Amino acid sequence: MPIILPSESPAARSVVGVADDVFAALRGESAALPRAESVVLVLIDGLGAISLRAHAGHARGLTAGMAKKDVVQSVFPSTTAAALTSILTGAWPGQHGLVGYRVLDPAQGVLVNQLTGWESEGLDPATWQAAPTIFERARAEGRPAFAVGVAAYAASGFTRATLRGADFVAAQTPAERVEVAYELAERHPGSVVYCYLPEADKAGHRYGLDSVQWVSALEEIDAALSRRVPPGVGVLVTSDHGMVDVPAHRQIVLEAEHLEGVRHFGGEPRMLHVYLDPDVDTSAAADRWTRDLDGRADVGTRDEVIASGLFGPEVSDAAASRIGDLLVVARGNGAVYDGTAHDQRSRGMIGQHGGLTPEERQVPLLRFGAFAR
């Protein structure tokens, strides 16, 4: 049984289109945004539109002018590796190839963590993620390009795959990162400046969306973005995905029979890639998983999910080879664990994402500075 697709308006905008919005505004060719001398694209990792509105009292600056239409849809799976790459390339996961958190490298037959496993598994950022970045596009047009982020991420494989073409500038706090981004945009007319704020995502994973720690992170980010935007600079604030809190009683641990015939479990607990042994009948396995997880998760084969368009209108051969034989998407606020030692270590994570709920896929797209209404 194929995965149940979310009901979305045909007119729903996607984070995939944000890159084109940036360049159209710089050229004065956008029907939606005023022309800007420079653009700052702020990415608040893990901030869903629904959770932002629910905590509006702690984010008065972000939500003051937020309209109902200031929302875009994240991609599938709704996880950082896939969604952040889509924002920074303007390409769907089926095109750029980062189709999950942990995916199979078919050449080596090993799972690769798409955020932290590039060096250990020998992935080449220039070929594993081959889509041009917004920074490479900017340089091709003769525009300065900068990425402002956390120093620890400066030289990572994921950074080299998604921030190619940008001059990386490190700053410690959200306020310092925003300040540096605004200064760069003001000093370099025509520039594209990216500013990454991971604090809410980290707090949500560890403590949950209603925790004191998550609210504190949101307040810190809101304060950072409340500073004055330099004249002529347009600011877009968005996110890669939202989250849901997964309580202990919604954790589904697979039984031993589910491990039979499985080579690898990839993805993450909200959206598993299941890689089967070569001699396993995929259709029969899908039927069995569907029966066993009835009401708790949706199950689809690789071909079914690709045909549904969830990975985008086109899926390259390279991307398809990284997708699981089966995909298992948890419903509601559940999560599916494979029961291995590695998987058990992640069961303490409260805020999670990767699935198809509105809480995970609806993210804000807010306008400030020269873009303000």
Rank of each mutant, 00 (worst) to 15 (best):
L43H: 05
F135R: 02
L365F: 11
A32F: 09
E268K: 02
V40D: 01
D277F: 11
A285Q: 14
A82W: 00
A248H: 03
A200K: 02
W289D: 04
T63G: 11
V237M: 13
G165Q: 02
P125C: 14
V246L: 05
L43P: 01
P230K: 07
G208F: 10
P269N: 04
D292T: 05
H264D: 08
V39N: 03
P198W: 08
G48W: 06
G267E: 07
L276A: 15
L98H: 11
G48T: 10
S216F: 08
R291A: 09
A56D: 06
E219Y: 05
S7D: 09
P230C: 10
F368E: 01
N333C: 01
R206S: 12
L276E: 15
R60K: 10
G266M: 12
A91N: 13
P125G: 15
D20N: 12
R53S: 04
R250T: 09
V262F: 06
H241I: 03
R143L: 05
A31D: 15
G309W: 01
T80Q: 01
P198V: 06
A370N: 07
G354E: 06
V42A: 08
G61Q: 02
S283I: 11
F168N: 04
A203F: 09
E37F: 05
Q73H: 13
T290V: 01
P278S: 15
F371W: 08
K69R: 14
T89W: 10
R60M: 04
S239P: 15
V99L: 13
E183L: 00
D240Q: 13
G117L: 06
V71E: 14
S346M: 12
A320N: 09
L236S: 07
V75D: 10
V112M: 08
F23K: 13
A284C: 13
R139N: 12
G94E: 15
G339D: 00
D303G: 12
V328I: 07
L218K: 06
